[in-house]
């Protein structure tokens, strides 16, 4: 993990709009996006598809409760 990620308290949310045919496709793209960005612990927090695409909030957890938090030691 790079130093800057250790400064994230818990998670990184990516909010975007994905051009897609339906919600399933949008969710697939969102997961691909997060994986491409290197996130391991991924959740789709919110997704809503209407017409041209989907509004999406995807989350990559950096630390979960009980982990050893990098920001605590710097």
């Amino acid at each position: 993990m790079s130093d800057v990620l250790e400064k994230i308290m818990d998670a990184i949310d990516i909010e975007t709009y994905i051009v897609s045919k339906n919600e399933d496709e949008a969710e697939k793209f969102a997961m691909e996006l997060m994986e491409k960005l290197g996130f391991k612990d991924i959740s789709i927090v919110f997704i809503q598809h209407r017409g041209p695409g989907a509004r999406v909030r995807a989350r990559g957890y950096i630390y979960k409760p009980g982990d050893r938090y990098g920001w605590l030691f710097n």
Partner: peptide, 13 residues
């Protein structure tokens, strides 16, 4: 704003 999200811990943002 994570109130309705059940897929993981609530985040500080």
């Amino acid at each position: 704003s994570d109130e309705a999200f059940s897929g993981g811990p609530i985040t500080i943002p």
